[in-house]
Amino acid sequence: MSETPLVPPIVAAYLEQFDTVAGRLPIGRRRRLRSEIVDHLLELVPNHLGDEDARLALIEFGTPEEILAQETRAEQEPKSRRLLVAGIAVTAAVLAGGVALFVSQVAGPEQSEVPASSAAATAQIVTSLPSGEDRVTEGPAFQEYASIIADLPALPEGAEWPSGVPAGTVVGVVPDGSGVMEAGLGQNIANYTYVCAWEFEYLTAASKGDDDRMDAAYLALSAWSTDDFWAGSDPSRIWAAHTLGPLLDGNVNNLRLDVPTMCFNAGIPVQYYALVEQGL
């Protein structure tokens, strides 16, 4: 268990501040700007940087208001650079295996996010009783899962947290009785359920050309990618570059490929071709 937050708390606080003030930006532009700022800050403010150095680096970077002023071509120079005070306590990472396979396929030719035949109403795949194994509500994996989902941000509209964890994880005992599963399994299931729901939400929204929902889904996934759980698995942000990066250019191919992997890790089987057939 690491005692050091993987995304410096001061950066997390900065991003939260950015999200608050960037609401007036046009849809799409906000996503791209946030992505650029995240990548820049994680390089500019590495984890080992002391608090004072990190604070100075952020002052050099400029406040979200300053950047927004430039974005909106404001004529006035911001009156002052506010001191940035970290306000978020980022909890230490608990990483216990179960790292998803990265989708490393090079993005194919760009395609429209709005297929010619826009899909009809598409039900969420993350429900209280999703497909896959039966769910159980007992054992350490479930206890951990229940604790983690209480702290994760909300799922998209129409999605519900599964009522339990897949039966295969019951009481954390390996089925052949040879040992006990690692702690962290419930945390993995909770996090992959979260990202499975939001990835599916993005695909659904894109199939309908719903910019507001795409925007919300992108921001949820982007924020999750800098959270300790995922930042610990992917400190170089390979997943964000391969999966979220192409979305900024209107390409959902890699995200579509990623959904089966993430959902599988959540115990929710999803077939890639089923997504295609649904027009997602």
């Binding site: 700007l33 700022i37 820049h40 950047i67």
Partner: peptide
Amino acid sequence: GLEIVKDLDAAGQLLTSQGTVYPLLN
């Protein structure tokens, strides 16, 4: 992005603040 910022800084602090490079690039 970070390279552009560093090079502009080295040339004479040509940005009001680093983060404003991204709206410019946009």
